[in-house]
Amino acid sequence: MRSVWHRLAAPIAIAAACHAVVLASAPAPALAQGGGQKASASTLIQRGSELFDDAQYEESIQTLSAALLRPGTSKAEKIEVYRLLAYNYITLKRTEEADAAVRGLLVLDETFTLPATESPRFRDFFKATREKWESEGKPGRETVAVVEKPIRIMHSSPAQVQPGTLIKLTGRVEDPDGRVRGVQLAYRAGAEGKFVLVNASFTLGEFRAQIPSESVKPPLVEYYLQAVDKGGLPLGSRGDAATPLRIAVPAPQKGGVLTSPWFWVPVGLAVVGGGVAAGFIIANQNKTSTVTVTVRE
């Protein structure tokens, strides 16, 4: 019996210590939350401009949309956001959104004009939109002085899901002035790369959307939701491209001591007085003995 104990003492002690580490380091579930401190509107505008210059138009739009919704964004900053959004939409030939961006700019500053050095493609589009906006009586100008009620997206999601899980997201939008025309979901696997933007189902103030299972990979999924107006411009959001919501996706455990065949002998484990006591049943020929190992800090 003594020889058996000497052969197994080391691995048993390691196993007990591993159990202690697992218990001590297991993270508590956390609610989905943003990925960090919110960047200022000016920082996001600069980043959005750089992305446009690098021909990363979708990423630029997502970043600029986040800037537009930042609390405390100045009038001048909003004008710059609308200008850059219009440039992106014009480049992508998304004329409806480009028209809405130019109109949003003109509502804030109807005297705005692009410099003569700007691309004729942008100048011609701005001019055509201005003429149409003026012929319609400058819609939107009458509401500039009106304090619009805030839009809130009410939503919660699981803190953690298993890889390959279809994530169903639901919620509702509080929209006192009735300006919201739709809800969009942007998601990506991991913390880098472009967000995939899809339209959520939106009826009577409630929305439903899904993150497909093939995008749910360790270590996490990032996403955000935004309410948009009839022109597709954001009015409110839950998270954004700079500070998205997160859902943890744990990786399956592979290899190591936890998969060792001898490790999975029947084990009784308890935390005792700051240490870990593990009881192992050891079979030696026709005899069965119980060995207790105590590992203390």
Rank of each mutant, 00 (worst) to 15 (best):
P115Q: 08
V265F: 12
K287H: 13
A76W: 08
V161Y: 10
A277F: 04
S135C: 00
F122W: 13
F126P: 00
P252I: 08
L245W: 07
L235M: 10
T129N: 03
L105N: 10
L258T: 13
Y82L: 05
T294V: 12
P27M: 06
A28C: 04
Q160C: 05
A227G: 03
I153R: 05
E96K: 12
Q285Y: 07
P115T: 08
E110G: 04
L31T: 08
I12S: 11
F52K: 05
L44G: 01
G232R: 07
L8P: 01
A17Q: 14
I153L: 14
Y187H: 11
K168Q: 13
W5I: 03
S42K: 10
R152Y: 03
C18A: 15
R7L: 13
E222L: 07
V228T: 13
L233M: 15
A277P: 00
P234A: 14
V265H: 11
T294I: 09
F280V: 03
V198A: 08
D240G: 05
K230N: 09
Q184M: 11
K287C: 03
Q46C: 00
A98Q: 09
K38Y: 06
G205D: 05
C18V: 13
I211W: 10
A39K: 14
F202P: 02
R121A: 14
A55P: 01
G72D: 11
M154I: 15
S40N: 10
Q46W: 01
L68K: 12
A41Y: 10
G48W: 04
K217P: 02
Q46A: 06
Q210M: 09
E96F: 00
I282F: 12
R94H: 05
G137T: 01
S260A: 15
V161E: 13
E50F: 07
A186L: 08
A278D: 07
G182R: 13
G239P: 05
S74Y: 06
V295D: 05
A242R: 08
V81S: 02
R208P: 00
Q210T: 09
R179Q: 15
M1T: 00
A39W: 05
S60A: 15
V276L: 08
E297K: 09
L69P: 02
W133R: 08
V4S: 10
I153D: 05
I79T: 12
V4L: 14
A251W: 12
L114T: 06
A200D: 10
L258D: 06
G205A: 09
Q184A: 03
V265A: 15
H6D: 11
P29T: 06
F280N: 07
G232P: 00
Q56E: 10
K287M: 11
V267C: 10
A76Y: 07
V107T: 14
A67V: 03
V293W: 05
N284Q: 09
F112S: 04
S40C: 03
E96Q: 11
Q62R: 09
V295E: 10
A227W: 02
T73C: 02
L92W: 02
R179H: 13
L69M: 08
H19D: 09
F280L: 12
E136L: 15
W133K: 06
Q37N: 10
T129F: 01
I282M: 11
